[in-house]
Amino acid sequence: MSAGRLVRAAAAGGVAGLVLRRLGQGALVMLAAGALAFAISELAGDPVAAMVGLDASPERRAEARIALGLDRPALLRFLDWAGAALGGDLGLSWRLRIPVAEALAQRLPATAELVVVSALFAIPAGLAAGTWAGLRPGSAGSRGAAAASLLGVSVPTFVIGLALIQVFAVELRWLPASGRAGTVELGGWRSSLLTAQGWASILLPALTLALFQLPAILRLARAETAEALAAEHIRFARARGLPERVALRHALRSAAPPVIAATATNLGALVAFSVITETVFQWPGTGLFFLQSVEAVDAPAMAGCLVLAAAIFVAVNLVADLAHLALDPRLRG
């Protein structure tokens, strides 16, 4: 075996090892999130009272406990619950009287579309503005962008949302203030991206989420670009007479991995927790469902939201790690 092939084989082993480690860590995170979710469903509310009423006799309550399986040890019940959850059964929502998994599946498309549309606004704009500002860190425009983005990072989402509603829905009456209208069912996926009415209703919440993400992306892209551009290897590239555009390409390649990783992780967080935006706009996604479940002390639904959020976090982080691995040879050993 030549030395070159040996190096490649070793690198391949390193990658497989890294992916396996990440998968193992993901499983641990899911186990911890599952335990937390189970603990919440144990502590929130009283399923026995819900079943037989608060004024039931002790005998009746004991029967209900046995019927619900609550007399068995907590660990066994957790294993049962985890096994069912692995099979996609997150229990029955106390509030809606339908399976939690079904309720989440109905609401996931709304959230997913909201996040994707907001990312389509925020990521290109944030990357472009951040890179532009990073290429000329001392300029007035760059300093202005940095200051404005600091303001943007500090303004809470609900303020942005309410301001957009005030301007575009109340004053100008261009767009609806809330709800998700104009949806079309397509193979079990209810989409609002196929009608003009649907787009009208998604624009304001998506813009709100985009304005929440954009400043962070801009700031990170600006900082990473400026740092990459100051690197010694860029100076050396210029000293070799390489054209400025090539030097910039080298700089952007170094700047890309951390920006991609942070942006991807941020997207995962949005899918999991667009709670505030969805509440402000009464957008029927998983975030609004979570809040409604908390208000109704719907323990299985809350637990289901938590498990879904953890699963999305783990998956998105794994994808971000793989992207980082593909981009940066230093991680490949």
Partner: peptide, 10 residues
């Protein structure tokens, strides 16, 4: 510093 003079990504 030769470590810094080479593009680490290429």
């Amino acid at each position: 510093d030769p470590s810094a003079a080479l593009d680490p990504m290429a």
